[in-house]
Simulated scan of single mutants.
Amino acid sequence: MEDSRYGTRTIGAILPVMEKWLGRKKGALTFRVTQVVSGHGCFGHYLHKIQREPGPQCHECGAVDDTAQHTLEECNRWVVERVALRAVTGVADLSLHSIIVAMLGSERKWEAVASFCEKVMSQKEKAEREREASADAPPLRRRRQGRGREPMLASSLSKASGYRTRTARPHRRCRGEGDQAFLIPPSIVRVPWR
């Protein structure tokens, strides 16, 4: 049952307002909002579950179990961000269900939650990268080395799909509106089989 904890938490928070959630015209789910809602992110509990941390404790405050809910509601490191979130949403109870209901209440409240998630998760991710890069980090913590994304993407497209893949030249400089230069990153180019 522990493995389904986050799925249960998310479903329990959204299910009572499912119609409103699905029918909303505003509010994009960003990467970091999704991390907080799902519990799959730089949380000690999740990192321990996927065997990237030796234990589930919080690196910020030392709490025994660093979950998404701990980050949202309890961790002392995020008091300032939490005060700003409560000020805009008017929510005293920061349970996931209360946050979801607030997000659905107005675009301003949605943006406040998204801003909280962005600020907090970006800082947690930065700290995680620093721990991974540390010379004395145990092997479990170190950033995994391996193939890049392009070879995996290329191999996922098969001859059966009617396409072969090749990589484009990396970072071509182009001109956008108002003569602003921007870079086109390397990408996968789909070419029909001959």
Rank of each mutant, 00 (worst) to 15 (best):
L15M: 12
F43V: 01
Q51I: 08
E128T: 14
R190W: 11
T167E: 09
P56E: 12
L22F: 07
T67K: 01
P56D: 07
E132W: 11
E81H: 01
G44R: 02
V83L: 08
E107L: 02
D65P: 00
S4M: 11
C117S: 11
R164C: 05
H70R: 12
I100P: 00
K26P: 00
V113R: 02
V80A: 15
G55F: 09
A84E: 08
Q123V: 01
K109P: 03
G12F: 13
G148M: 01
E74S: 12
T167G: 15
V101N: 00
S187Y: 13
T71S: 05
G39M: 06
V79D: 13
E118W: 05
G39K: 01
R141G: 01
F116G: 07
L47D: 00
I11T: 13
D93F: 08
H171F: 12
R169S: 09
S4H: 05
S122V: 04
F31I: 06
P151Q: 05
M103I: 06
F116T: 03
L29H: 03
R149C: 11
R143P: 00
G90N: 04
D179S: 09
V191L: 07
G7M: 06
G162Q: 03
D3Q: 15
K20W: 08
R144K: 02
A87F: 08
G146E: 13
E2C: 04
P186D: 02
A154M: 13
A160H: 03
M18S: 05
E111Q: 12
S155Q: 13
A133L: 14
R82D: 03
C75D: 07
T167V: 14
R143C: 05
D3F: 15
V120I: 07
E118V: 02
T8A: 15
V191F: 08
A68H: 03
Q69A: 14
Q69S: 15
R144C: 02
G7H: 11
N76K: 13
T67D: 06
F43T: 10
D66S: 02
W78H: 11
W193Q: 10
D65N: 08
A102E: 03
R173F: 02
A13E: 03
G27W: 01
P54N: 11
R169A: 11
M121G: 07
S161E: 07
Q51W: 06
H171L: 09
I188D: 05
R147P: 05
T30A: 04
L157I: 15
V79F: 02
H59Y: 04
T71H: 06
P186G: 06
R129N: 04
G105C: 09
M1F: 06
A114W: 02
C75E: 07
A87P: 01
